[in-house]
Amino acid sequence: MSDSKPAQETKPETWRERLYEIIFEADTHAGKLFDVVLLIAILLSVLVIMLESVESFDDLYDFQFHIAEWFFTILFTIEYVARIICARRPLRYVFSFYGVVDLLSILPTYLIFMESDEMQRLGVIRALRLLRVFRIFKLGHMLTGASELRHAIWTSRSKIIVFLTTVLIAVVIEGAALHLVEGSVEREPGVENGFDSIPQSMYWAIVTMTTVGYGDVTPVTPLGKCLAAMIMFFGYSLIIVPTGIVTAELAHSGSKMDPSLISTQVCPECMREGHDSNATFCKFCGSRLN
């Protein structure tokens, strides 16, 4: 008599696990198809909102736009609820970046019951959901570049804070100086002074330093023009500073990752992405990947 044990049968997947694989993963045919259809729906819904803001189109197709908007809102609501149901840790998904974006993408339409129809224009936040395209189509080189840039900015945050503090101090000093020089100067009838207070003068300093130059507020005295020229030169000299800081940090890090080694898998515990293709455990929380 043989004492060998029968092979252990694999436990069939539950409907929640199958739904999770379709919604949160892009490695399977069903998962990729779901995400592609979702991206198309997002693009169409954003297009509807954009066209609805055009008065001529809104007058002709107001009813059709409202029907389309409610269709997409209900569709995205069903998808949002399905993500919560199949997620192992629903609250982790709800408070994750994509979870918040998914919620904000459907709220504006429901808020029109309490506010004006203009709230519906906020639905264009759905465009943020298109960030999933990098994971769905495995654009690993873009994911790697984004990770390197984020790391460089975070690493050089102290330098950036010092730079912004310097700019803020310069804006305050320049704003106070222009308020002192130009604040009491009489202008032509119907022309506002623009330097009546330090905050208003700071607005002019920011617009001038960033080389935007709206021209809505301008100094008229020789001393005011001299101060304006100084802050213009100062602004030009500061333009390259943030770029130089981040570029130097990028060159210093020099981290390169093979895009083909990036997986599209989402951790069921912390809902984060960016794992290696051969990873068994999440590199962020240590949980086992599906």
Rank of each mutant, 00 (worst) to 15 (best):
K138E: 07
C285E: 06
I239T: 01
V171S: 06
L39W: 08
V181K: 06
P268H: 06
K5A: 12
V266T: 05
G31K: 08
G190C: 06
F24C: 00
L143G: 15
G190M: 04
L75V: 02
H141L: 06
M202L: 12
C285Q: 10
F65M: 08
I239Q: 03
T210C: 05
R18E: 05
P6Y: 14
I106G: 01
L33D: 15
G224M: 04
R83G: 09
V37W: 10
T73H: 07
M209A: 13
C270Y: 01
P242T: 03
M232D: 08
I153F: 02
L180I: 08
I40F: 03
I40G: 01
I84F: 12
F195K: 00
M50H: 11
P199C: 05
Q120G: 08
K32I: 10
E52H: 12
T243M: 06
E249T: 14
V48S: 03
S56R: 09
F95K: 04
P242A: 10
L164P: 04
P108V: 05
V48K: 05
E273R: 03
H151K: 08
S116P: 05
L139R: 01
G224I: 09
T166S: 11
L149S: 09
K5E: 15
P90F: 06
E186V: 09
S260L: 14
T165P: 05
A229T: 14
S237H: 06
D216R: 05
D3A: 02
I161H: 15
H141R: 06
S2G: 02
R132C: 02
I49Y: 12
L178A: 04
A229R: 15
G99P: 07
S45P: 08
I125K: 07
L103E: 05
V94A: 07
V100C: 07
E192L: 11
T247M: 11
M119E: 11
V46P: 00
V171F: 01
P242V: 02
C226W: 09
C270N: 00
L130T: 13
A30K: 03
A146Y: 14
E13S: 15
S287V: 00
G183V: 09
F195R: 02
N290V: 13
I23Q: 04
E182Q: 01
T77G: 05
W154Q: 11
H151M: 10
T221L: 03
M114Y: 10
L143E: 15
Y61Q: 10
L128R: 11
Y110M: 13
V101S: 03
R272E: 15
D27M: 04
K32N: 10
K138F: 02
Q265R: 02
T165L: 03
